[in-house]
């Protein structure tokens, strides 16, 4: 028995999902962060965030198509994390790293929190 493993498949699929997001194709939820709106796919959000997993597995909430996040969430921090979900690349801007880390805590993205924490400690 043998098999062919396409080593790029995961990144090829993620790139296509990000293309669908940027063209607003099959996006099924709007996330409201203060006055900014972000369109996304529930499946990608719940695959990457513990908070969204809890929301969209709740039978009372999973059919809603718009969610407002806590007003303490920084839209820029959320935008950076949403891009990370769809690209696997986390933008590190000195001025935003704390806000990204706090937003990742809120979204229950523990591995990103740990990585941000290590980055902050190393840059100190």
């Amino acid at each position: 028995d043998s098999c062919i493993q396409f080593t790029r498949h995961a990144s090829d699929v993620l790139l296509n999902l990000n293309r669908l997001r940027s063209r607003d194709i099959l996006t099924d939820v709007t996330i409201l962060v203060n006055r900014q709106q972000f369109r996304a796919h529930k499946t990608v959000l719940m695959a990457c965030s513990g908070l969204f997993y809890s929301i969209f597995t709740d039978s009372l909430k999973c059919n809603m198509n718009a969610f407002s996040l806590d007003p303490k969430v920084d839209p820029e921090g959320f935008a950076i994390l949403l891009d990370f979900m769809y690209t696997s690349r986390l933008t590190l801007k000195e001025s935003f790293i704390v806000s990204v880390m706090n937003t990742a805590i809120y979204l229950q993205m523990d591995h990103v929190v740990d990585t941000c924490h290590r980055f902050i400690k190393s840059s100190d």
Binding site: D1, S2, C3, R8, D12
Partner: peptide, 21 residues
């Protein structure tokens, strides 16, 4: 895939969705 001979294909695996139609 325990015990299976895996051949690694480094090339693209699926079509690329264009940035716009």
């Amino acid at each position: 895939y325990e015990g299976v001979n895996t051949i690694k294909e480094m090339g693209r695996s699926i079509h690329e969705i264009p940035r716009k139609e």
